[in-house]
Design a protein around this nucleic acid. Structure first.
Length: 556
DNA sequence: TCTGGGGTCCTAGGACCC
DNA sequence: TCTGGGGTCCTAGGACCC
């Protein structure tokens, strides 16, 4: 999928189509997850600090990711892929390998290309979004082809042309060559894939180690026989938080580690696993990162056992100077279903043994309760497990869970400078519903007010209104589906003459109007602030102005 | 107002075992 | 009683990917 998160937001929010959109962390230490192609023209890209992005593209719309929404779209797309072949290997929400041979849908390059183009059309029809397809004889080459195809294209690498195609390319195109390996190779005078192949396997193994060296040499020769693997088992589960401000108070550090351990176990159990090794991760004020791990005698999914292990690990870490990130993970996973009494007993036994090892009577007591199968409910601070659920894990329960988690996060402030809770309560980009004005989304909030743009994926670009943050008529709501199956659009606020529901269902029609080289110059159809359109704080007279300032807290 | 969060894989040393 | 040669497990760190 092309610029997936940003494209999904643009499809969801008509006023953002054709505009610079940045999705990522909005706090002082946030980074960009995805920038729309319009935003990329300003130099904004993934993994860039959001603060830097704001300097480059101050008028872009800045939105928090809505993983539940993206997951729904992703599942539709993955479903289309599975119609092509049983062998589908997802790499992330927006990318997957498909083994066309195993699917029997293509017998040669002509039919393969036809399958790829039909897939792209289906993706567009089902999601309203564009995707790119790379077709080749191996995973590595298909991935390189898909990168070449972006955005909104298809590239097929003809059999027999692979090596000649790769030779002039930069080594960084190969999977497994990141910044460190890239530098390493450059210092050795190797900058292209052709030079990599010329260096020879022995030389590369000497430089990069056996596995990496041999692997890279094979890739340079376009040799890649890795199979497409549909089901891959999870090997670890982890949770981490970067804090807006470094934590200095040791007591607070301990508290956060307990919370993280509880959240981690919540996810572990939700995935039907238990685990043996507990890992604590600490990033200090100077960005130096260390991990400490402890392997238990047997797997556990008991929150208190993991919490105690994490607490022990923390005691071996010096946190003077401050801590910017804490994380807790569990690896050494075992399948651990609720019904598996044998495993349950084994886990409880292991927990008891682990507790004994440290000579802690209270731990042993809790392990005993686990033995009874009682410890499977909420953790010691059970509400936390549920409320602080992952931003990325909001299930069908809806987006309401995520803001609640954010609220918890914003409130943890004792002993540290307070964190502004504004964009936590009304996260930029989240869907809301107003009792009178209907569905819309949060453009921004601040100084006790929240600015909402009233539009839906199927409507024309909508208008902005501002409310008090505690307005009873306003509530967070489920995301609106991008492409409606049968149901007509819910509410089309202030429709244009002739822009009836039927037309509104065609995303392409609107996109065509909204495209332009300069987002600032764009005005969405029907978006002028006419009479009745309230001006929120910083709301301007055009879509671009108002969306930019209102979606950037403090920016207007 | 530099540098997220969730993962995977690899390496290397030490302990331990046969 | 101048110390081999596997193999596995554990721990810590690092590179890389999206």
């Amino acid at each position: 999928m092309d610029a997936f998160y940003a494209s999904a937001e643009q499809a969801s929010k008509p006023s953002l189509r054709g505009k610079a959109v940045v999705v990522g962390g909005l706090g002082p230490r946030g980074v960009v997850a995805t920038a729309s192609y319009e935003a990329r023209r300003f130099g904004v890209h993934s993994a860039m600090p959001t603060a830097q992005a704001r300097r480059l593209a101050p008028n872009a719309a800045y939105l928090v990711p809505r993983f539940g929404f993206y997951r729904d779209i992703s599942e539709r797309v993955m479903g289309l892929l599975r119609e092509l072949s049983p062998l589908v290997e997802p790499l992330s929400l927006d990318e997957a390998f498909v083994d066309l041979e195993a699917g029997g849908v293509a017998s040669d390059e002509v039919s393969a290309r036809a399958v790829g183009e039909r897939l792209r059309a289906d993706i567009r029809a089902v999601t309203g979004l564009t995707g790119s397809v790379g077709i080749a004889a191996s995973k590595m080459l298909a991935k390189i082809a898909s990168e070449e195809a972006k955005p909104d294209g298809l590239v097929l690498i003809h059999a027999g042309t692979e090596r000649a195609l790769l030779a002039p390319m930069a080594v960084r195109v190969l999977p497994g060559v990141g910044p460190a390996t890239g530098d390493h190779l450059r210092r050795a005078g190797i900058t292209t894939v052709g030079e990599l192949a010329e260096a020879g396997e022995d030389e590369l193994v000497r430089m990069l180690g056996k596995s990496h060296g041999a692997g890279l040499y094979a890739m340079a020769l376009a040799r890649d026989d890795r199979p497409v693997v549909a089901e891959r088992e999870t090997k670890s589960v982890s949770v981490e938080d970067t804090y807006d401000v470094d934590i200095h108070d040791r007591t607070r550090v301990r508290l956060e580690v307990q919370r993280l351990a509880a959240r981690c176990v919540g996810r572990l159990r939700a995935s039907g696993h238990s685990g043996r090794t507990v890992v604590l991760k600490v990033r200090r004020y100077d960005f130096s990162t260390l991990t400490r791990s402890e392997t238990l005698r047997g797997p556990t999914d008991d929150p208190s056992v993991v919490q105690e292990a994490a607490a022990r690990l923390l005691e071996s870490v010096d946190t003077t100077g401050g801590v910017r990130l804490l994380g807790v993970g569990v690896s050494g996973l075992a399948d651990y279903t609720q019904e598996d009494l044998f495993a349950q007993a084994a886990g409880a036994r292991a927990a008891a043994e682990a507790a004994e090892r440290t000579g802690r009577a209270d731990a042993a007591a809790r392990a005993e309760s686990a033995d009874e199968g009682q410890a499977r409910g909420a953790g010691p601070d059970g509400s936390l497990i549920h409320e602080a659920g992952e931003k990325g894990e909001q299930g069908p329960g809806g987006p309401a869970g995520a803001p609640a988690g954010e609220g918890v996060r914003a409130e943890r402030g004792s002993g540290e400078p307070p964190v502004a809770p504004v964009e936590r309560r009304w996260p930029a980009g989240h869907d809301v519903r107003h009792a009178v004005y209907g569905p819309g989304w949060v453009q921004g909030s601040g100084v006790g007010r929240v600015t909402v743009r009233f539009e839906t994926p199927q409507s024309a670009p909508g208008r902005v209104r501002t409310f008090a943050v505690d307005d009873r008529d306003l509530e967070l709501s489920e995301p609106v589906a991008l492409v409606l199956e049968q149901v007509p659009p819910a509410v089309a606020p202030e429709p244009e003459p002739g822009a009836g529901p039927g037309e509104g269902q065609q995303p392409e029609a609107e996109r065509g109007q909204g495209r332009g080289a300069e987002p600032e110059a764009e005005r969405g159809p029907g978006a002028e602030s006419g009479p009745g359109a309230e001006s929120g704080p910083g709301a301007g007279s055009s879509v671009a102005d108002s969306s930019a300032s209102a979606a950037s807290p403090g920016g207007g």
